[in-house]
Amino acid sequence: MSSPSYPDHLLTLDEWVALPDHENHHVEVCEGVLVVAPAPGAAHDHAEMVLAMQLDRELPDDLCVLGGVEVLVSENPLTVRVPDVIVVDRALVDADPDRAPIAEVRLVVEITVPGTARTDRVTKFSEYAEAGVPQYWIVDLDGPPVVAVFTLDDGWYRYDGEHTGTTALKAAGHDITLELPGLAPAPVKPAEPSPR
């Protein structure tokens, strides 16, 4: 039985691009170090899709909402993140780059799952702030969906509160309404007992 092969040095962008597909894992690079996690699962994927569709419906046509897109945070040392949802200008989508430059990202949303909370709340929080991303949202699905909202203020994120239910927010400079309960799959109703 052969053992997996791991890089013995910090990855470059060319090496990252040459990696094989990794459909069953969530793979990123942090300061040249390959970071591999299990795929997040169906509940996470549902929330990502619903949130992206809600944002897309609410935002003007000159903005695009993307999910699962590589974002180049830094080339040296290499940091590539794959946020759950980002908002960018339509011009970037029309240009169709291989990955979104962090300077072009107006909003990043990460949906936490077991094993990613510390990365989302500490590591990515500081990376996105230092890179100048204007807004960062962290969605927690442990219970009724909650979104923590952060806005860049003088080089660091200001906490703008946690929101649940149907909530009015600003996203990429625009007023929007999110239906956060829609991020969680509808509860399965117990089957009615059959009459005897």
Score class of each variant (00 low, 15 high):
51 L>C: 06
56 D>Y: 10
53 M>K: 14
45 D>H: 07
32 G>M: 04
56 D>E: 12
46 H>K: 07
33 V>N: 00
60 P>G: 10
37 A>L: 14
58 E>V: 06
60 P>W: 08
39 A>C: 06
58 E>C: 12
35 V>Y: 01
47 A>R: 09
46 H>D: 11
40 P>K: 00
42 A>I: 11
35 V>Q: 00
61 D>R: 13
42 A>K: 09
50 V>I: 14
55 L>E: 12
48 E>G: 09
57 R>F: 07
57 R>A: 15
45 D>I: 01
49 M>Y: 11
40 P>C: 02
53 M>Y: 14
61 D>N: 05
34 L>E: 01
50 V>W: 05
54 Q>G: 08
51 L>W: 09
61 D>E: 15
34 L>C: 07
36 V>E: 00
33 V>A: 07
43 A>D: 14
42 A>S: 13
43 A>H: 12
55 L>W: 05
45 D>V: 06
50 V>S: 11
37 A>E: 02
41 G>I: 01
40 P>F: 03
59 L>D: 04
37 A>V: 10
60 P>F: 14
34 L>T: 04
60 P>C: 10
53 M>D: 13
51 L>S: 01
39 A>V: 08
53 M>R: 15
34 L>S: 04
52 A>D: 08
38 P>F: 04
40 P>I: 00
56 D>L: 05
38 P>I: 04
42 A>F: 09
58 E>P: 04
39 A>L: 01
57 R>W: 10
61 D>L: 09
50 V>D: 03
60 P>K: 14
47 A>Q: 03
35 V>C: 02
59 L>F: 05
57 R>T: 14
36 V>C: 01
37 A>T: 15
58 E>M: 14
48 E>A: 07
51 L>M: 10
52 A>H: 10
40 P>L: 01
45 D>S: 12
59 L>E: 04
44 H>C: 08
52 A>T: 12
52 A>C: 13
42 A>N: 12
59 L>W: 07
40 P>M: 02
55 L>K: 09
39 A>S: 13
42 A>Y: 06
40 P>T: 07
60 P>Y: 10
44 H>F: 05
50 V>A: 04
41 G>M: 11
48 E>R: 12
60 P>D: 13
36 V>G: 01
45 D>T: 12
49 M>P: 03
56 D>Q: 13
48 E>L: 09
51 L>V: 05
50 V>G: 06
57 R>M: 13
61 D>K: 08
48 E>S: 07
42 A>G: 09
48 E>F: 06
49 M>T: 15
49 M>R: 15
43 A>E: 14
33 V>E: 13
38 P>S: 11
40 P>V: 02
53 M>A: 14
49 M>I: 12
53 M>P: 00
53 M>G: 10
34 L>V: 06
42 A>C: 10
55 L>S: 05
46 H>C: 04
59 L>Q: 01
44 H>W: 06
37 A>G: 12
39 A>P: 09
51 L>D: 02
56 D>C: 11
58 E>L: 08
54 Q>T: 06
36 V>W: 05
